[in-house]
Design a binder for these strands. Sequence first.
DNA 1: GTGCAAGTTGAAGTCGACTTCAAGTCAAGC
DNA 2: GCTTGACTTGAAGTCGACTTCAACTTGCAC
Lengths: 162, 162
Amino acid sequence: MGLSRNDLLTIGQLAERSGLATSALRYYEKLGLIHAERTSGNQRRYARATLRRVAFVRAAQRVGLSLEEARTALDRLPEDRAPSTAEWSGVAQSWQSRIDRQIDELERLKVKLTGCIGCGCLSLSRCALYNAEDRAAAAGPGARYLLTRDPSSGPEPHPSTG
Amino acid sequence: MGLSRNDLLTIGQLAERSGLATSALRYYEKLGLIHAERTSGNQRRYARATLRRVAFVRAAQRVGLSLEEARTALDRLPEDRAPSTAEWSGVAQSWQSRIDRQIDELERLKVKLTGCIGCGCLSLSRCALYNAEDRAAAAGPGARYLLTRDPSSGPEPHPSTG
DNA sequence: GTGCAAGTTGAAGTCGACTTCAAGTCAAGC
DNA sequence: GCTTGACTTGAAGTCGACTTCAACTTGCAC
């Protein structure tokens, strides 16, 4: 399990240690999330700090960021060393409020479901589940685009061609 | 805004009332989530109860179910009337535990982030963010496949061809 | 110096949940 | 009866985050 040489990781080693597939790491590199030196034979060699960047990206995804957003956040942290408390706390705090919003939305949904049990609900007239008001609010990771259909808030699902 | 005739909704009306696009409703029909009668001219006409089914599907998505899973859950509820308290409570309770798991995972992530602020963390040796142990646990809606790489738990990301 | 696992590339495929398109048909108001 | 907007279909496109493929090259153990 030891590193083969002076602290540089092959893509396979980074994959094993980060829990990601090598193909994912190459993909991350293409997006500019991580970066590797090359051997004379053109193989990638990663600095150990890359492990940190990968962990950061995975955590970012868990808070609901896209890889593109993760890249932006990553740009505000140093590439070659651990961030200082100050550097880190800004990021962490904005993530915390994201998490809080997600938790909040889940709590509200839970209350609605409980209400529905109590009132024998799902009748068309006044079930809370039918009131879509806060659909766009905070939805979990990855789900934002799936559950939002309210044109007055948040990004459009696929504004590409039309 | 009134219904044009005897309680049957056109696809446009159902779209407006449910907040979904007509294309989404046709897609739901193709998946067997909803069903429509037809006019002599082959246009869809929906019973009002369809509104309930659609609402159910959207709620299911918010708890993290796929449309396929929603269809399965839907099969256990009556198609033409509001479910009884008994019929509903089984579903609602299983959703609640899903929600609880999701909240739980978010709480844990939040604690980790707080820890990282306090300890000037993100050093490679012992930052909690690096310990991926519970990655596969509960992740939010839609995110399960993105964040899971642990072969010992949960569904494989894309086991299709290989 | 050879064998073979592990690396390289770009292009194409996958997944779920839809949307968009093209080419036509229906329904309802005037 | 005509116009026009809402509807019909199947096929193809979109999105993000990867994975898979094919054809090839490197690097390390023996």
